[in-house]
Amino acid sequence: MDFPEELKYTEEHEWVQVEGDLVIVGITDFAQDALGDVVFVELPEVGAEVTAGKAFGVVESVKAVSDIYAPVSGTIEEINEELPDAPEVINTSPYGDGWMIKIRLSDPGELDGLMDAAAYQAHIAEEH
């Protein structure tokens, strides 16, 4: 399984890529594997406010429904418009074409609470 060093991670298995005061968010390779075939994604509207630790959307596999949690607080700047028509790219490219949303940070200090790749892998090992 792949956990890029340049990303930050949450305990709920989202990844975060920081680009200035914007962050890109998706779910990790571990999360997509655990879900199985992703067949549906529900994302918020551009301009919506999200709060760190609160659900911002839903991802569904054939068998299960899972919430996706905002790693940081802020405003939705952009969503991946391709996902509703091709949710399977979350399985094939969780860190690339499977990205979900871009958030404009309201509190950059929240980034300090996220894990690096090594800490996230330790978290997975401990949880499972």
């Binding site: 199985g36 075939d37 067949v39 596999s61 054939v62 068998k63």
Partner: peptide, 9 residues
């Protein structure tokens, strides 16, 4: 077993 290669496949 709930799946091997994946439910859809």
């Amino acid at each position: 077993p709930v799946q091997y290669a994946g439910v859809i496949e």
